[in-house]
Nucleic acid binder design. Structure first.
Lengths: 241, 241
DNA sequence: CGCATGTTTGATAAACCTCAAGACCGGTGG
DNA sequence: CCACCGGTCTTGAGGTTTATCAAACATGCG
């Protein structure tokens, strides 16, 4: 529950008392092996998932083996409004690494938040954040060069990671191969590799097997035209009724 | 209210009685000239907008004059979850054509839907649809060729238009210049023009000053890998509590 | 060590962009 | 009614970015 609670508290002034009904709500945990499907295309979504450990991803597959990764879910992420209205999934959700999920029943979850306005507020925030991330992804792949996309994406991952674990580090764990980056950013693996190499040569970042080190954050932010304020709007909570 | 109600009824089995509180809710109408800013970047969002006539658009601007249009709002569209939690806008909203909006106060709107679960359900559906549109936009610009993007986008506009006016036509009004298409699809105006020309030559579409005619829908759908079922999930309503 | 998986590098090709000029079109004023 | 004007669309030529293919190189693991 840890990182998830930390994240909600980051958005909303919510106390343990408010969270109690959620904690009391029945749930189960399930582990998925890397590559395993969590929610298949067109499957009715009636469960709420929360990532406890690992990364999952949303993606759509085109012919010619093309894949577009819509976004990644990091620990603390992953709650889906669609589950609350019982829609069918318009994309696939897959474990990007070995992943541990906490799973609630959508119907029961809905009952809880309908009667706990502070909690509802918190989940609206999560949904707002999710939309912001989608919009940012559109800007990235629509109008940015390869290097800009990568810089921007690294900074976003860093920001999300730091929120989830309440830290301030400059290291961005990247537990997936570069091919995943490619499919997220609409580029080829080869070009990702070349761009990373040039960014390393320029002293912007360092890479290792486990992730990326931000060396020159200012330069990276300039390259990425990254404005964290736009990614993480101030928590302004509408008081519960 | 027309097209907006029609749209909600398309998603949710909602009667006039359910809609009554919304209709009774105080609101105003406002007209924006083409190009006028409706919501500025970083402005607190405390109002709910509904497009009565015209198109508006969400966009982000980068340096070098680059613009990425995130999506268009057509008549009947445009409700923003962000307004309900009082977040600041992370993008600009602009009138793409002369536009008439119906505007509610976010706080009052929230009170209404918190006490009308069927109505809340309907708005969740609208939000789910919005997210679906964002995801589709990501797939388009991330992994599709220029012609595929255009084909896909035309079909989506056509679908949305048909839902809003409960029609089945093959004509897609396009009240904005091709430069807008370019900024939405992450392409240059020149390449948009060339691609449209080649699609006309191939007998897929016809163009006129006012819009695009779908000539060979099947071929267009194949080119676009377009699956309407993924764009418009079946309305499965969770019964109001 | 040998294998599978992932990354880097090189060479070539395709897609798309930019710049620039010309054509079209709708509206406006004479 | 015509001429002109601004905005938009089209076409051409040449350049840049990115993709593709293929091979070499690393790395982790049994």
């Amino acid at each position: 529950m840890d990182r998830f609670v930390r994240r909600m508290k980051h958005y909303v002034d919510i106390g343990d008392a408010d969270l109690a009904p959620l904690i009391a709500l029945q749930h189960r945990e399930q582990t998925f092996k890397s590559g395993q499907t969590i929610v298949a295309l067109n499957e009715p979504m009636d469960k709420i998932h929360i990532v406890l450990d690992g990364w999952s991803l949303r993606a759509r597959y085109l012919d010619n083996g093309r894949r577009q990764i819509i976004n990644f879910q990091l620990p603390g992420d992953y709650f889906d409004l669609m589950s609350l209205v019982g829609a069918r999934s318009d994309h696939t959700i897959t474990a990007a690494t070995d992943t541990v999920l906490r799973i609630y029943d959508g119907r029961e979850f809905l009952d809880i938040i309908q009667n706990a306005h502070r909690l509802a507020s918190a989940f609206w925030w999560v949904t707002v954040q999710e939309e912001t991330i989608l919009r940012q992804q559109i800007v990235r792949i629509g109008r940015m060069s390869a290097r800009e996309r990568i810089a921007n994406f690294i900074l976003e991952l860093n920001r999300r990671q730091n929120i989830a674990q309440d830290s301030e580090g400059d290291f961005v764990p990247l537990p997936v191969p570069q091919a995943y980056l490619a499919d997220a950013l609409g580029l080829s693996v080869v070009h990702i590799s070349r761009s990373l190499t040039s960014m390393k040569a320029q002293g912007l970042i360092r890479t290792s097997r486990r992730g990326i080190d931000i060396v020159d954050r200012n330069a990276l932010m300039e390259l990425a035209e990254y404005n964290p304020a736009l990614m993480c709007p101030d928590p302004i909570v509408i008081a519960a009724q």
